[in-house]
Design a protein around this nucleic acid. Structure first.
Lengths: 255, 255
DNA sequence: TTCGTCAGTGACGAATCGTCACACATTAAA
DNA sequence: TTTAATGTGTGACGATTCGTCACTGACGAA
């Protein structure tokens, strides 16, 4: 009479990942707006009913993809956090890991943006929403850690009326604004042709840190070269993949 | 044999605006994702075919709504640009006019974000795309003007390796990042509850201006109070409307 | 009056969504 | 082994939505 559990947890997870990966491939090929549950089902060795067992709807699948993306980004952030060097340099490095992520996985980046919209979050399952919140906390952990390192080595002091969380948010929203406005493939703003995302992110981050009074411990000759070599050391594979896509991080324009 | 033009331009424009307004009302009620051409047609004294004469598809309508929104925002920006006071204060004021816009017309704000996505831009008519580009130039004009005022009165000097356009973009993306991350009605990030959008926008903008070395000409005692009174003077109706919605700009938390 | 042109119509096919009645598999008890 | 109960998987189905297109009617010119 005991209700039998026929499926083990691991198989379910694996299947979920398979569905997510198939959906990501479809998004990369057709664009996120043309993602169709029917197409996903066609790509996958399960029927529609089974897919809907995992995701209560299209939006729920989208949120799950977003969560998967945030895991990927969280890994990049953590690597930046763990890198050698002074806190300010690592924070800049972290922002550039965000840019690398946006350039390398534009479809994933877009999924995260879409998942933020209330129409998606409102139609998703509690399970995936909770997971989303946990993942974002983890994402913030790396930023938080770097800020605390900066506070501890006295290179950074909290500005008036600001706490650590606000500092973290400042950095996050700055990077988010620059990257989301500039990383789109379509030139959205006219006259924006002269804006180069890596250069603006570099300048904007440094303006922000200067505004905070965040001092680099190493009075290095060229912070741009320092960033470049750190990126080469920390993200060699990612940079190679970006190069393979024909889009290269270019630091020559602002030496 | 001459083909008769039976419809005058003005009537067409008026009808287009009627369709747009009906669509905006529907978005406010049902959310942007549930906007349906059928529903729009039902709200409007025209048939589907006529609506499709004006907009080649749903995305084209969305872009048209976005353009309409940018006009509204452009007006707010221009009022901030024309206001009295030093350049830095007016730039801060402009950023807050952006926040007022996002709070007052969340549906419009969301439409602009959506219209940025390639799937919308890719399916829109040349006519609306061109209009979009022109409008964004106009939007940037106010920002550009304030920066030039700052340069002219020597309160601001261009940072190393940055031109006016990059300064403009810095301010724009900073405001965009903070507002788009925090103005959502859903608390998206966990732990974000302690972040207050008006406070973070204030702090972030000032950090940026400090980083640029942008000096306020008036050594006023309290820049926050100065902003508050400027907003009261420049946007009394808008602030009243926001109050009527139950959401008030609160400056008490960071006096 | 007759014809040509154009604004306007709404029924239609295609595509998509999510559901549900049913079929199959596995285990426990008889 | 048989039977019952429950978990798992299926894909046909109705409901929506999209954008089109053959048709109607109004108006002016010949």
């Amino acid at each position: 009479m005991t209700p039998p559990k026929l499926l083990d947890e691991a198989a379910l997870k694996e299947r979920e990942l398979l569905i997510i990966n198939s959906a990501v491939l479809l998004i990369q090929k057709n664009g996120i707006e043309n993602l169709t549950m029917d197409k996903v089902v066609a790509q996958v060795p399960f029927s529609k009913g089974t897919v809907y067992k995992h995701f209560i709807g299209k939006e729920d699948l989208l949120l799950a993809i977003s969560n998967y993306s945030i895991k990927v980004l969280g890994d990049l952030f953590y690597r930046a956090y763990q890198f050698k060097g002074c806190a300010r340099s690592r924070m800049l490095l972290l922002n550039f890991s965000y840019l690398i992520y946006a350039m390398l996985y534009p479809a994933l980046f877009q999924c995260v943006l879409c998942a933020k919209s209330p129409n998606v979050a409102g139609k998703s399952s509690e399970k995936h929403i909770n997971e989303s919140e946990k993942l974002e906390v983890k994402l913030m952990t790396s930023i938080h850690g770097i800020v605390e390192d900066g506070l501890n080595d006295n290179s950074l002091s909290l500005p008036l009326n600001m706490d650590i969380q606000q500092i973290c948010f400042s950095n996050w929203s700055t990077a988010f604004g620059a990257i989301s406005l500039l990383s789109g493939e379509v030139d959205q703003c006219s006259g924006r042709t002269s804006l180069i995302v890596e250069r603006e992110l570099f300048n904007l981050s440094n303006l922000l840190y200067d505004g905070m009074g965040w001092q680099p411990l190493t009075k290095d000759s060229n912070p741009c070269l320092e960033l470049k070599s750190a990126l080469d050391e920390l993200f060699p594979e990612e940079l190679a993949k970006i190069k393979a896509k024909g889009r290269e991080l270019n630091f020559d324009s602002f030496s």
